[in-house]
Simulated scan of single mutants.
Amino acid sequence: MPDAIDDTVHTTIHDFNQQIIDEFRANRGRLTGMFENARLLLLTTTGARSGRPHTTPVGYLPDGGERVLVIASAGGSPRHPAWYHNLLAHPEVTVETGAFTYQAQAVPLTGEERDEAFARAVESDPGWAEYQAKTTRTIPVVALYESGDGGPGTINAGSLSEAIKVVHDAFRQELVLLRAEMSGAGSALGAQLRVNCLTFCHGLHNHHTGEDTALFPFLADRHPESAPPVFARLREEHERIAALVAELRRTVDGTATDPAAARAEVERLTVELEAHLAYEEEQLIPLLA
């Protein structure tokens, strides 16, 4: 009888996860229901015994420009989740963020580094502490380092014009999450929320640098009639946004951050960035069609 119960539970979890995976891929990372504002990614590992790929939706923590963190909580189960055993045997994994898919190297954190990361997770969501309280095992925290040349990975789009919209929508969604997290901040801005802001700033800086150095020259060469007015304005907007990003960095990069000041900077950046993204799509997508 216990085996039958275990099989039923396993099937239920598999079906539930598959629904999330299907929705995640269909909507490039956007989910509805209980996970609408959750930070989730799809992690594909290689089975430790079977050697077959296994995809699991997992919560993650932004952690700068070089890595993200995932937590092997298994809801406070006494056993580590299967995906954790898989990556111990095969550290090469595939990560899907919705906008991007990339290969990564999984590295479990240890000692103080693990404890500090888990403390940040608990600070941002007390549910992690509840999971740890349910079990005697130390819940692992794993860093996923992007493999390859350090680029953003493969954009989940079928064309360059579609890629612009996909990447822009990813920034829009991140702003939605940041603003929701900011609104829930109390009298002090938590360490993980500061990391979230700084990670967003890093990603936006890299995106605009790539546009300035590669995309804009490419399009200006193909469409010289659009070069003077359009690309001059876009570069000016990049400079204004860079100044707002720098101010947000200064506001949140410290232990005595004023949440009200941080929220104000995020709102200023949101207004400017949303207008910029809309103008850029209006001007560039037709050039790439």
Rank of each mutant, 00 (worst) to 15 (best):
I155N: 09
A72R: 00
D3N: 03
Q173W: 05
E225R: 09
R172A: 12
P62F: 09
A214G: 08
T257N: 08
N156L: 12
L175H: 13
S183F: 01
L40F: 08
E181Y: 00
A163Q: 10
T46S: 08
H205E: 11
L215A: 12
T97I: 11
V70R: 07
G65S: 12
D258T: 04
V245R: 11
G76E: 10
E281Q: 10
F100N: 14
A121P: 06
A246T: 10
T56V: 13
G76K: 03
H205Q: 13
I285R: 13
G65F: 05
D22S: 15
T257F: 07
T8I: 07
Y102P: 07
A157T: 05
P217A: 04
P62A: 07
T154N: 10
L215I: 09
D221A: 05
V142S: 13
F200N: 12
G47A: 06
E272V: 07
H85K: 08
A170M: 10
T44H: 03
D6V: 10
V93S: 13
G203E: 11
A185H: 00
E92H: 11
A188K: 02
A214L: 12
T138M: 13
G98D: 05
H238I: 14
D63S: 14
E236Y: 04
A143D: 11
E66C: 08
Y145F: 15
A214N: 09
R268H: 06
E247W: 01
S73V: 04
A242I: 01
H207W: 03
H54K: 05
G158S: 07
L277H: 02
A180V: 09
D169C: 04
L41V: 15
P81Q: 02
H168A: 14
R25L: 15
S73P: 04
C201P: 00
T55F: 01
G59W: 06
C201L: 05
L219W: 01
I5Q: 08
L144M: 11
P126S: 13
M1K: 07
T46M: 07
L204Q: 05
H10L: 04
E282A: 14
E130I: 06
M34S: 14
T94A: 14
Q103T: 13
Q18T: 15
A104Y: 02
R249A: 08
A243H: 14
L193Q: 12
E267W: 01
